[in-house]
């Protein structure tokens, strides 16, 4: 093999090195992430505590997904006994932790 030609493995190592550095960057960013967001998170957490909020505002379309922890297991059927859950977000949001409990 002539010395001028780059070996394919060198190219691969270069590509993998770039990928590895990118991967490392994501890890570093993930480590720094919570720290940088701490102020925002703390402010929001204080707001949530002051307003006595119980849930995340992820899905606003249905009662039982807007305040999932306050809904019971049958909330999706509340409109009438055979009403199947029909909101799209119902497929992303589990029933609340309390709904899984047999008794208090």
């Amino acid at each position: 093999m002539s010395t001028l030609r780059v070996r394919p493995s060198t190219v691969l190592f270069a590509i993998l090195a770039v990928g590895g550095v990118a991967f490392g960057t994501t890890c570093v960013e993930a480590c720094l992430g919570p720290g940088r967001a701490a102020v925002r998170l703390a402010r929001t957490a204080r707001l949530a505590e002051r307003l006595q909020l119980t849930d995340l505002c992820l899905f606003t379309e249905a009662r039982y997904t807007r305040h999932a922890s306050q809904a019971d297991r049958h909330a999706a059927f509340q409109d009438h006994p055979a009403a199947l859950e029909h909101f799209p977000s119902g497929s992303l949001m589990p029933p609340s932790g309390a709904a899984n409990r047999a008794s208090p």
Binding site: T54, L56, P94, A98
Partner: peptide, 23 residues
């Protein structure tokens, strides 16, 4: 009355997307 504990609210979101993410 129906009683909801903070632990359960937390766990609701602990498993958000979790089992559905499993789906």
């Amino acid at each position: 009355a129906r009683i909801i504990l903070r632990d359960e609210m937390r766990r609701t979101y602990e498993s958000v997307f979790d089992w559905r993410e499993g789906m």
